[in-house]
Amino acid sequence: MRPRVVCGIAAAVALFATACGSGGGGGNASVTAQAAPAGGYPVKVADCAGKETVIAKSPARIVTSNAAGLEMLLRLGAGDRVIGTGFPPGKGTLPADLADQGAKVPVLGDKTIPKEKLLGSGADLYVDTFGAMPVMGGGATGPSEEEFAAAGIQHVYLLSTACAGTPKAAKAPRTDLAGIEDDLRRLGAVTGTAARAEELVSGMEQRIGEVRTALAGVPEDKRPGYFVFDFDAGTKQPVAVCGRQVANAVITLAGARNVFADCDADFKTGSWEDVVARNPDWIQLSVRNRGTEEATRKAFDDAEAFLRSFPATKDLKAVQEGHFVRLGSEVTTIAGVRNADAVRQIAAAVHPDLVKNGQ
C-alpha cells in the first residue's frame, strides 16, 4: 500500500487501530494458542510465520501497540495489567462500559510507541497489532526480537491484523470473523482468561448466528451492493474497502455484497469513476467517533451532504434512494468484539423485513 493511502486511512482509524494491517481471510493455522491441558501454563503462541513463543506464566505488565489490543484486554478482564499503550483511544472511541478504565492507561506514544520507551517500559508482554508494517511503526522501525528478549518482553501479535502481506496470509476474501475470535482466544490463553474469551466468542457467534438464520433464504444474487465511504480518509479519491479487510466479512455476514470485494488487498485508493461504475445499492457513511454525540452526528451529516452534492455521486442509486448506513469506522474496519454488532446493524438496514433490530 502506498504511504499516502496509509495516512488517509490513519486519519479515520489509527487512534483506535491500524485498519491497514488487516490480514487475509477468516482462518489461519497459526492463530491457535496451545495451552497446557489444565488450561494453565506454559502457553505456546505463533507469529505470522509460524514461529512459536512460549509464555511460561501469566503476564503482569502488558503494553499494547494501540487500542484494538487494549479493548480486547479490557473485555477479557486483564485491563488492570496494562501499563501503557500507543495510539491511545480517543474520547468516545471505546464503548461506555470500558471508557473510564481505558482512559486510565498511560499513553506511551500518541502514535507508535518510541522504541526506547517500549523497551524501557518494564513490560513483560507486548501485544502487537502492526507486525511488519514499517509505515505504521512495525518491522524495520520497531525493536528486533533480540532487543525484546534482552528487555525481558515477550512479543505476541493480533494475527487477524498483523499478517497482511506475509507469505502465510490468506489471499481469498475474508468472509467470517474467525481470525478475530482466534485472537481473543489467544489473548485469553496468554493472560489466563480463557474462560472469559470463550464467553466473548460465544456471544459474537450467537449474534452472528441469529443474523445468519434470519437471512438464510436470501440468495446470493439478491444481496444488495454495499460501499463503505471512508469520509475521514478524504473525498478527493475514495478509499475502497477490499476483500481482505475485516469489513468485507462484516458486510458479507450482514447479507450484503461489498462492491470492491474483488480487489486483493485490505484497502485500495480508487476513483469516483470506480464507485459510479459499481453503483452500490447502499453506502455506509463511515466516520470515526468525534467524542460527543452531536459532533459525531455532524460528521455523518457532512458525509451525506458531500455525496448528495458531489457531481459524481449525486445520481448514484443509493444516494437517490437515501440508502445510507450511519456506522462508525471503529466497529467496521477494526478487529474486535463489536464487529458482531456491526453485522446486525448493517443487516437490519439492508434487510429490514428480516432483521428487525440493529442495536
Rank of each mutant, 00 (worst) to 15 (best):
R2V: 04
R2C: 05
R4P: 00
G8K: 08
I9R: 05
V13L: 01
A14W: 00
A17F: 02
A17E: 06
A19W: 00
C20T: 06
G21T: 03
G25M: 10
G26P: 01
V31E: 09
Q34M: 10
A36K: 06
A38M: 09
P42F: 02
A46I: 03
C48G: 12
K51F: 04
T53P: 07
V54E: 14
S58Y: 06
V63G: 05
T64C: 15
N66I: 06
G69A: 09
L76V: 08
R81M: 11
G86H: 05
P88S: 08
P89D: 08
G92L: 13
A96T: 13
D97Y: 09
A103H: 06
K104A: 13
K104W: 12
D110G: 06
K111T: 10
L119P: 09
S121H: 04
A123P: 04
T129H: 14
G131Q: 00
A132S: 12
A132H: 12
G137S: 10
A140Y: 03
A149K: 14
A149L: 09
A149Q: 11
I153R: 14
Y157Q: 11
S160D: 14
S160W: 06
S160K: 09
K171L: 15
T175I: 13
G179W: 01
D182V: 04
V190A: 13
T193V: 01
M204C: 14
Q206G: 05
I208N: 09
L215I: 08
Y226Q: 04
D230H: 13
D232G: 06
A233F: 04
T235I: 15
V239Y: 10
V246H: 05
A249W: 01
V259Q: 07
D264I: 12
D266E: 12
F267G: 03
D274W: 07
A277F: 01
L285Y: 02
V287K: 02
R288H: 12
R290K: 15
A295V: 05
A299H: 03
A299Q: 03
F300R: 05
A303S: 07
A303N: 02
A305I: 04
R308N: 05
D315N: 15
K317C: 01
A318V: 01
E321W: 01
G322F: 05
G322L: 07
R326A: 05
R326G: 03
L327N: 03
G328P: 00
G328K: 07
T333L: 11
I346N: 04
A348K: 00
A349S: 08
